[in-house]
Write a protein that binds this DNA or RNA. Structure first.
Lengths: 223, 223
DNA sequence: GGATTTTTGGAGCGATGACACCAAAAATAA
DNA sequence: TTATTTTTGGTGTCATCGCTCCAAAAATCC
């Protein structure tokens, strides 16, 4: 019942151990698993689907990754690391003002959500929203990740307030909640086959809700 | 493999048949199933969970509803009928203009998504987005429902253009896609525990993206 | 009351899911 | 080479899933 997080040996990449070296590349296998989870979610991905996509046997799977749940944890972390690259690069780009950062975030989102080389949309946005009670661990973790990205947005906005990009009476938490919701909506649209252009335009429309800077406090680019 | 939609006898409500009458109320049982599907999704809800929540045996289930998939179909139709009540009542309220209709739609959404007497969020918005390939039927159906509500929004906007509520160069399909995305995002936020007030405020922010009426064409309430 | 019709409980079935184990194979250190 | 360490394929296991069948029970009509 309680899943044992027995992750076997799990040697590092550049090991120089004694025994037989693994014939598969751990990173590649993890990547394959990530894409499958991304496409189908946790419950929608079976053990057999996983080992087939990863090209390894059940025992190798067990030795290297411990369990399905442990692998899912690794896969989501791997996804977040990848997605965090472009997400935070844009969000924290010091050369652009706050509004531009969010506009570019949605441009990038439109592109990333519709690329042909990986599943559509976002691995996190919709994960663990509809699941059985036994998946509470997964569900809570996903909600936590979503809350994290939302608070990162709010943080950026607070920086914008400090910069003068945003009026001081801006409710950053609420504004971030709004843009977070738009991002989740984009993920659904992407799943349903919306084109990059459509997502891009939705993002542009969402930016029209951006609060006007206070008249007496002229907002310029961050210097 | 191919699910037989053998729905047994499935007598009407006010039947006066010959044999033993069913001891359970079909509508009540269907409602219980709907809420379970709403909460957990299709794959997250097991047969045993269903018959337990519905208070019937496996055979009664099979006799009355045919199969899990058929029941899910009934449950979603039942949900759509219920949700369509308030959705279309507001969307097509002839006494308010287009912008007000959408503002009220989001107010109602905020309230309905966070009520205590049924699961949080929307049964359709997030359904079938992360699932195994075998669930293609469900997935496509859900995407179809989502597209339907989006096109209903677009239709209302076109009426608004005709009424003069919206400028004639409004891209109604795109604007509807945007508000549809916001609605999906609200569903995720609701799932993650956002309060009614938070959803309400997100809706208000979303309304700030509403296009301004053309200066030369003054928009008044529909008369 | 008897016949008929329908529901109900319970048992069981084949398939799948996720894991667990084991002995053979392979690579390195000594 | 030998011993040691680790991977690997194959097989087995236990639970769950969704469904199916059957005979008993119950209610109606005649």
């Amino acid at each position: 019942m309680t899943p044992k997080i027995n992750q076997g040996t799990k040697l590092e990449e550049g090991r120089r151990g004694r025994g037989r070296p693994a014939v598969f590349d751990r990173g590649t296998a993890l990547n394959a698993a990530m894409k499958l989870f991304w496409e189908r979610g946790y419950e929608g991905t079976s053990f057999d689907d996983l080992i087939a996509a990863m090209g390894i046997s059940a025992s190798s799977f067990y030795n290297s990754f411990g369990s399905k749940e442990a692998l899912y944890g690794e896969a989501t972390r791997s996804y977040l690391e990848w997605a965090g690259q472009w997400f935070f690069a844009i969000l924290n780009d010091p050369s652009i003002d706050t509004k531009t950062a969010f506009a570019r975030l949605f441009e990038a989102t439109a592109e990333e959500f519709t690329r042909g080389d990986h599943p559509l949309g976002c691995m996190i946005s919709l994960a663990g929203t509809h699941c059985s009670p036994g998946m509470k661990n997964v569900r809570d973790k996903m909600a936590e990740y979503r809350a994290f990205s939302e608070s990162a947005m709010a943080e950026r906005m607070r920086k914008g307030v400090a910069n003068g990009d945003l009026s001081e009476d801006t409710d950053c938490d609420m504004l971030a909640a709004y843009y977070s919701a738009v991002a989740r909506g984009l993920a659904v649209q992407a799943r349903d086959g919306a084109s990059r252009e459509k997502l891009s335009e939705i993002g542009r429309l969402a930016m029209r809700a951006w609060p006007a800077a206070k008249p007496e406090k002229r907002a310029g680019p961050a210097s």
